[in-house]
Amino acid sequence: MLVSENETLKNNIIKWAEELGKDRTILLPLLQRVQKKYSSISPYAMQIIADLLDIHPVEVYSVVSFYSFLNDEPKGRFVIRLCRTISCEMSGRDRIARQLQNELGIAFGETTPDSRFTLEWTNCMGMCDLGPAMMVNDVVFTEMTPEKAHEIVERCRQTFSAFALQNKQEG
């Protein structure tokens, strides 16, 4: 079972690497694809990537550990990132933080036991005029209130995709 999973992972990586052009410059785009599809970059994946790009696994690991949006260990299906930088802090991020913690029963940096949610801090994402801001996977939410936080978490519980959230917000 595990073997075949790794096998498909490997085939996918090889395919993407061919598409992107097998050079060490494609490291980031390749990692992003793996991250997007598998929501984490496993040690096995890192070693396959290193082999394909003719670099060392530790170099891949170094890049993965550098970027917050790449991770080597699986995170929750929904990764909620609340901005902690000064503008958002001043517009009331603490209330949102408390709400999220109560709602999910976990602290920042943790993942719920059912692997649904991961709660994290992030730094400024350029939404300072619309603070407090947060992200759920790659969707940004602005002008957060505790009620809105509750609603978003509820909606995540009921759906399986962050895109459902996005449509709702845009709509």
Binding site: P43, H56, E59, S62
Partner: peptide, 25 residues
Amino acid sequence: CIDMQEVGVLGAINRGDKTKIATFL
């Protein structure tokens, strides 16, 4: 380790004040 010996054991992991020299994983 990387350029001179091409073994590739060591790398810098993490970022900012958490940066450290480490091995794979």
